[in-house]
């Protein structure tokens, strides 16, 4: 009985000390790219918890990792560098070609179809979430 109480207490403490993570990040993929060049990472974030913000992304696969959005104005393609991306609660936020994406600038190595690498996404509430990204053709 005492053991059970300790266990419950421990669970309770763990739950309180860190914000509940209710984000699922699925379908992460990146475009193939060559060393020195660029690539982009795409995924879907489903937020089942509180509203959150994606603040940054990092990976050792590229010299710089940034949050970007492609905006089409008529026939024109415009790139925007974002400092945060709102992740609304109860919704799926899609990072996809022609829209939101994580840009990898200055690849440290070739990214070939089938390769995988780790990408850490930093959220205001959920903190750091590390995901595995698979390189594939769109």
């Amino acid at each position: 009985m005492k053991k059970l109480l300790v266990l419950i207490l421990l669970l309770y403490l763990t739950a309180c000390s860190r914000p509940a993570v209710n984000l699922s990040i699925e379908e992460a993929w990146a475009r193939p790219g060559m060393a020195g060049g660029n690539s982009a990472v795409y995924f879907v974030i489903e937020n089942l918890g509180m509203p959150d913000n994606l603040l940054a992304a990092s990976s050792d696969v590229a010299k710089a990792v940034e949050l970007h959005e492609t905006v089409m104005e008529g026939d024109q393609m415009k790139m925007k560098h974002l400092h945060q991306v709102p992740i609304p609660a109860g919704e799926k936020t899609h990072f996809q070609p022609g829209g939101l994406h994580v840009m990898l600038i200055g690849l440290q190595r070739d990214l070939k179809v089938g390769d995988t690498f780790e990408l850490t996404l930093t959220f205001q509430q959920a903190g750091d979430q590390t995901i595995t990204v698979t390189v594939q053709q769109p």
Partner: peptide, 13 residues
């Protein structure tokens, strides 16, 4: 603010 330095807005036809 970007490591890319600059972007080129261009038409895509």
């Amino acid at each position: 603010a970007s490591a890319a330095g600059y972007f080129v807005t261009h038409s895509t036809r």
